[in-house]
Design a protein around this nucleic acid. Structure first.
Length: 598
RNA sequence: GGGGUCGUAGCUUAGUCCGGCUUAAAGCGCCUGACUGUCGAUCAGGAGACCGCGGGUUCAAAUCCCGUCGACCCCGCCA
């Protein structure tokens, strides 16, 4: 049966017209006499009516139809009898009086219901992803993703960007995340790596004279997963020549505001605010602050030094700090709430949570007797706390204290419902170029080894690496990093100095970055770029709680694909071709050959 | 590598703390029947569970203990 119309194209202007529709049976309502079928195609439903007074054989066959059967029907578009219209359907004013029915294919009962409101475990959803993807929310998300990608492409092209594909089979680089490796058959004992990003290739393209490059690029990182992290994810990757930070930032602001406007009808205020990395750490304890609400942190180490409280002193004597925050006059907390919060901080790895009430009795605070009234007043003023409000203190090593205070700040805000529903973008700039790795006993790049230092700091790269700031910028939305980039090093001499600081010797650099280093010698223009995390952006735009819901076929937390069964063993013949021998499999799984031989 | 939550009919859950009144319960779905204006149709009846898997404790285990597998959340990791 060849369809003449889609359900969505049916209108009340077509009364009396003969149409052929095809699609899936969404629901059957059998009244013994009259029988209704909801036919679904491309997410639009239309009602089919079978009347027993007509063709008895047709009516009998319609009774055999079950949900998700694939059917074709021919019939007449009719106005529904007065009072039986369904205002919730776009086709609710009409129905199809069916004259011919073809059951194109049958369907087993679904493993779970398609009702959007029904809650189904993710395990089941992922195992039956083809069913899950029938559900309206998933359909909406994936169609949204399509429109967003299309919009991004069109907009970037309109701004003069050229999309160029870079290899997926490339070579492993030492810095950064763990690579996924692919063994080479033609050159035994060697491996390709899947790219963590097109970084080096896009820089080479700058040398080649593609002044504005972009790519919707798949990136691979063999690291542990999170609700907002998948081993393969998609980036809107771009790079520009003869630009500084401001120009890259302006492009991203243009792109993001365009996407919000055209896909969600939301007008974002640009330019987005900017915050230096050091200031972000001081005020929010993190380099990805959630700016939708206040409750900023205060380092009160100096103030609390006046008290006799031993626990704070002990922490500070070991180089720790005391960070404080308050809920800025919003709700008051009960003793039970406070106990729960203290427990929560301990669960997050903290030693505990100290608290006291601003300017109104001690109300059971275990530490208030150490705090004279004047000091409490000063603290409350610093934290913008109203009388009676709780002040919180986290004491720990600086790094950990900041992490815990940031977690506490966000936890409190969400539990006390203090987060307004808005989109707060902020640029974090001037990251340190290097950070000291205790594990490796050397400096490592905070962003990546091709990031340029601030011009004023460049001279200190070699002898005072820790004081050098980078021309790097991250875009943070509601506490989640959604883009990161930098102005790159375009001169070979500076690039080599950076490698030297990183402990990457000339031989190693030549071996592993040769094609980029080489290219930098042939007229590399000043350049910089950024990559926008596409999956994450979609997740935030649609208020989803996991990145998996933005991806048609995502991986589980163990990196497996419940649809395909990947990763899986391969045959001995395949291994032999690749010159690979499996030393040991720790799950006792058999090879493909052993399975086949059963 | 570490910490945590969860696993009971196809789906969602109750029962698990405190072992035995459980023949393991319910809603949805499924099957059968009734029903001519429904749209989450309705009504009546029915089938459906080695309580994730393995071991242990006990007269007795969905329930307690140990191990293991799987899904999820977090720390580490993710330039």
């Amino acid at each position: 049966m060849k369809r003449t119309h889609s359900c969505g194209s049916l209108t009340s202007q077509m009364l009396g017209q003969q149409v052929v529709l095809t699609g899936w049976v969404a629901a059957v309502r059998d009244h013994g006499g009259l029988l209704f079928i909801d036919l679904r195609d491309e997410q639009v439903m239309a009602q089919l009516v079978f009347n027993p007074e007509g063709d008895a054989a047709l009516h009998a066959r319609a009774r055999e139809v079950r949900p998700e059967y694939v059917v074709g029907v021919e019939g007449q578009v009719k106005r529904r009898p007065a009072g039986t219209e369904n205002p919730r359907l776009t086709t609710g004013g009409i129905e199809i009086g069916v004259a011919r029915l073809e059951i194109i294919n049958i369907s087993s009962p679904l493993p779970f219901e398609l009702d959007a409101a029904a809650s189904v475990s993710e395990e089941v959803r992922l195992a039956y992803r083809f069913v899950d993807l029938k559900r309206a929310p998933m359909q909406r998300t994936l169609r949204f993703r399509h429109r967003l990608t299309l919009e991004a492409r069109n907009w970037l092209a309109s701004q003069g960007f050229v999309e160029i594909e870079t290899p997926v089979l490339t070579r492993s680089t030492p810095e950064g995340a763990r690579d996924f490796l692919v063994p080479s058959r033609l050159v035994p004992g060697t491996f390709y790596a899947l790219p963590q990003s097109p970084q080096q290739f896009k820089q080479v393209l700058m040398v080649s004279g593609f002044e504005k490059y972009f790519q919707i690029a798949r990136c691979f990182r063999d690291e542990d997963l999170r609700s907002d992290r998948q081993p393969e994810h998609t980036q809107i990757d771009l790079e520009m020549s003869f630009v500084d930070e401001d120009e890259v930032i302006r492009v991203v602001e243009g792109l993001v505001s365009r996407l919000y406007q055209s896909l969600l009808g939301i007008k974002l205020e640009i330019p987005f605010p900017r915050l230096k990395h050091a200031e972000s750490l001081a005020r929010f304890g993190t380099d990805k602050p959630d700016m939708r609400f206040g409750m900023e942190l205060a380092d009160v180490s100096v103030l609390v030094r006046e008290t006799e409280l031993k626990i704070f002193r002990a922490v500070m004597d070991q180089g720790g700090v005391v960070l404080a925050l308050a809920t800025e006059g919003k709700p008051r907390l009960s003793r039970e709430d406070l106990n729960r919060l203290t427990e929560w901080v301990k669960e997050q790895g903290g030693q505990g949570l100290a608290w006291l009430k601003a300017g109104a009795g001690d109300e059971g605070s275990p530490i208030s007797k150490f705090f004279p009234e004047g000091l409490v007043k000063r603290l409350a003023g610093r934290l913008k706390a109203a009388p009676g409000e709780t002040l919180f203190f986290i004491a720990d090593k600086p790094h950990k204290a900041r992490m815990l205070a940031d977690m506490l700040r966000r936890h409190l805000a969400s539990r006390l419902d203090l987060i307004p529903s808005k989109n707060s973008f902020v640029w974090i700039t001037e990251f340190p170029l290097f950070e000291w790795s205790e594990d490796e006993g050397r400096w490592v790049s905070m962003h990546h080894p091709f990031t340029a230092p601030l011009e004023a700091d460049a001279a200190r790269v070699e002898n005072d690496a820790g004081s050098v700031y980078a021309r790097a910028y991250d875009l943070v939305l509601n506490g989640t990093e959604v883009a990161g980039g930098s102005i790159r090093i375009h001169r070979r001499d500076l690039q080599e100095k950076v490698f030297k600081v990183l402990g990457i010797g000339e031989v190693q650099a030549r071996a592993q970055f040769s094609f980029l280093l080489n290219a930098l010698e042939y007229g590399a223009p000043p350049h910089g770029g950024i990559a926008v995390g596409l999956d994450r952006l979609i997740m935030l735009m649609l208020n989803l709680t996991t990145i998996r819901d933005t991806i048609a076929f995502p991986k589980t937390q163990k990196g497996t694909c419940l649809v395909s069964g990947a990763p899986a063993t391969v045959s001995d013949r395949q291994l032999k071709e690749l010159n690979i021998k499996i030393l040991q499999r720790d799950d006792g799984r058999r090879t493909t050959d052993e399975e086949r031989d059963e």
